[in-house]
Nucleic acid binder design. Sequence first.
DNA 1: TATTTGACCAAGA
DNA 2: ATCTTGGCCAAAT
Length: 108
Amino acid sequence: MPPKSFNEKIYKLLKKVPKGKVTTYKLLAEALGTKAYRAVGQAMRCNPYAPEVPCHRCVSSDGKIGGFSGSIDPNSKEVRRKMKMLKGEGIKTKGNKIVDFEKVVWMD
DNA sequence: TATTTGACCAAGA
DNA sequence: ATCTTGGCCAAAT
């Protein structure tokens, strides 16, 4: 069978992340056996896979929120909704950062 | 095919 | 603490 695009791998892996946990672009890339941290973010940039991909569970390695409040308007309705969802999953966010980041980072 | 871009990362100033 | 630089990889144009 033809190899799927990296985007699909990423999306698949991201779906694999247990709820209430988060992952970093780096971890995802490394988990895929690559170092395309950027490609990962690039893939979700527009989230071509829609709600199947919980992009809100993806954060930067510093525990900061990427995209949602980093480069995109933190006051956007969409963004705030995602943050709220994170909170609802047990992930507390402090401004644009994650609280107890090390505790919620994905480790399978 | 080549160039640009991008929700990154780590290190240095 | 913030800003800059270099590096990495893949997708989009």
